[in-house]
Amino acid sequence: MMGAILAIAKATYRESIRQRVLLVVLLLGLLLIGVSIAFSSLSTGEEFRFIVDFGLTGFVMVGLGLACILGGFMIPGEIDRRIVMTVLTKPVSRFQYLFGKFLGAALVIFIVDVLMGIPFIAAYMWKHPQHQFNPVLPLALFCMFLQTVVLLGAAMLLSTFSSSSFTVIATGFVYVVGSVNKYVAQLAEHGDSRVQKLIFGVLAKIVPNFQNFDLRQALLAEMPVDWHHIAVDVVGYTILFLFVVLSVAWLFFSEREF
């Protein structure tokens, strides 16, 4: 059971890291961090704040890009190239295939995040007034990783029943709504019409709240970590979201014909 999943995850990972577009995304991310270091010296006094803001935004953007590319094109690409036929005629269930693909893509995201995280942490310590390491930093990056994985799950669900271009657009939409989820919820509460309340209400409920994943404030204020928040609103939510999204994706995928 696990063997086939891991074999597919490994192949997905191997295939992905050979794709030039992923390298480009990684380089863009590194560039963003480099630029943030260069520019930080201009904003005197705010240097440290600048690095944190700019750097974390880099993680978000790269994550969004990865989720769209991997989630939107990975499985449709294998369907186009008819690879999926050769895999599913081995003793591999559609669930194993889907989940293996997901794990492989998540591994790619993790590696990209590590590769960007190391220079980011170095830059942070360099620009930090006391050159201190902050344990919230890796945690903040881990939350960014989880946010990307949540987007990946959403994209994979979308790609099981829609085209790649729609998946990319819709994933972008999920990201935008998720980032302003709080305001969407407010719109739902204070909406004028019932239709408006309903639409914004549903949207706020089904789209993840990415504000929960953003530890920027805690990082800048060097506040202690709210572990309860991390465990429930970030990790717990991610697990639940992925469970639901991948289950529904599996339902759609089971009906697909190749």
């Binding site: 891991l6 074999a7 192949a11 050979r18 008819r82 036929m85 050769t86 081995k90 003793p91 591999v92």
Partner: peptide, 30 residues
């Protein structure tokens, strides 16, 4: 599917793998 083998028409595979790695991948699936 353990008991059947399928040779598709104009097979398409992971092109970046070499022949050995490709068969290794399918063996892992098995």
């Amino acid at each position: 599917k353990r008991r059947i083998g399928f040779m598709p028409d104009g097979p398409y595979f992971y092109g970046h793998l070499n022949g050995y790695e490709l068969l290794e991948f399918y063996a892992n699936l098995l």
